[in-house]
């Protein structure tokens, strides 16, 4: 029994993203004892195959081409479809990242299959593979099953535990040659805006600011705190609307949904639309001058005080902690 499952190892800046190891763990569950085949697409990426195998894949298929150096919908869908046609899998798992969100629906359309997007858990229950996913931006959850055809899902970063890496694991890394043609979209320029390379949706720590941050400069102490904790900076809609920061940082029902280990909300009142984007974080800290602020209702720990006083003090304390540990 069991089914053969393909899982995409997503490459960013020359390494596999964490979500790929989480996707491998999900693929293992979906495979129910069947073979898990990693797929890596890129320019010169075959060296990454071993790491995907150490994290649980049985073997890896690599497609290399200069046309895959950057992600394009057409290039990646042609490459992935070539692997799918070759392998004929019964399951497919991708990370629910910018790449996965863009690519997965096209593949699902080509295969005439369903797609369970943004899954936060998968388990075998009562003879079914049951996927859990947030709806209404995490205000509710649904459990979904595939009723026809390919078991195809994308998994949300930071939610499914990766398997422990086993450096003694080995497997075949093969190359499939694909003639990639007719790219209908061409990337002319990439402007890096994200903070310090830590991606908001994958960050283990998020320091977020709201209207209470008061200005663009007001985000500086938050950035310092995020840097000390190796985290990313986010914002509420209020802060974005007031143009204190870019919309790409917005967390909420409109904006990004994040589930870090630690979420530090600074000067954020806690409107429902914001809570929808962060309330499933593992630990929430609220810092706000207003003791009645809604954010305290979802926070695990709260400090009533001025963020401009509290945040720099926190940064100093965390620095001390890092030195000691």
């Amino acid at each position: 029994m069991g089914r053969k499952v393909l899982v995409l190892g997503e490459v960013r800046d020359g390494s596999l993203r964490n979500v790929s190891f989480e996707a491998v763990a999900a693929a293992k569950t979906v495979a129910e004892g069947g073979e898990v085949v990693g797929v890596i697409l890129g320019e010169s990426v075959s060296a990454l195959g071993a790491e995907l195998i150490q994290s649980g894949a049985d073997r890896v298929v690599v497609v290399e081409s200069d046309k895959l150096a950057q992600y394009t919908t057409d290039g990646y869908s042609q490459a992935l479809m070539a692997v799918i046609n070759e392998e004929d899998p019964e399951g497919l798992v991708l990370g629910h990242t910018a790449l996965g969100k863009d690519l997965a629906p096209k593949i699902a359309s080509k295969l005439n299959s369903g797609l369970i997007s943004d899954s936060t858990a998968v388990e075998e229950a009562g003879g079914n593979l049951v996927f859990t996913r947030p709806i209404y931006s995490g205000k509710a959850f649904e459990k979904k099953i595939v009723t026809d055809g390919l078991v195809f899902a994308t998994v949300r970063p930071n939610n499914i535990a990766p398997l422990e890496k086993d450096e003694s694991r080995s497997g075949d890394v093969s190359t499939l040659s694909v003639d990639i043609k007719d790219l209908r979209t061409v990337i002319k320029e990439v402007v890096r805006k994200a903070t310090e390379g830590v991606d908001l949706s994958e960050a283990k720590v998020v320091v977020a600011g709201g209207r209470g941050v008061k200005s663009e400069e007001g985000f500086e102490p938050l950035k310092e705190l995020a840097n000390v904790l190796g985290g990313a900076v986010g914002a509420s809609r209020g802060a974005c609307d007031a143009e204190y920061c870019d919309y790409s940082l917005q967390i909420g029902q409109t904006g990004k949904v994040v589930t870090p280990d630690l979420y530090i909300a600074c000067g954020i009142s806690g409107a429902i639309q914001h809570l929808a984007g962060m309330s499933n974080s593992k630990v929430i800290v609220a810092i706000n001058k207003d003791p009645e602020a809604n954010i305290f209702k979802v926070a695990d720990y709260g400090i009533v005080g001025d963020l401009f006083e509290v945040v720099p003090m926190l940064t100093e304390e965390f620095k001390k902690l890092k030195v000691h540990s």
Binding site: S279, I284, Y301
Partner: peptide
């Protein structure tokens, strides 16, 4: 005809309000 099916919808467990710290800042 749909390829997937929702079998259950539920609300996340209500988070209990945590501790607001006290004393010197």
């Amino acid at each position: 005809e749909a390829k997937t099916k929702t079998i259950e919808i539920y609300l996340p467990p209500q988070k209990e309000a945590g501790r607001v710290l006290e004393g010197e800042l």
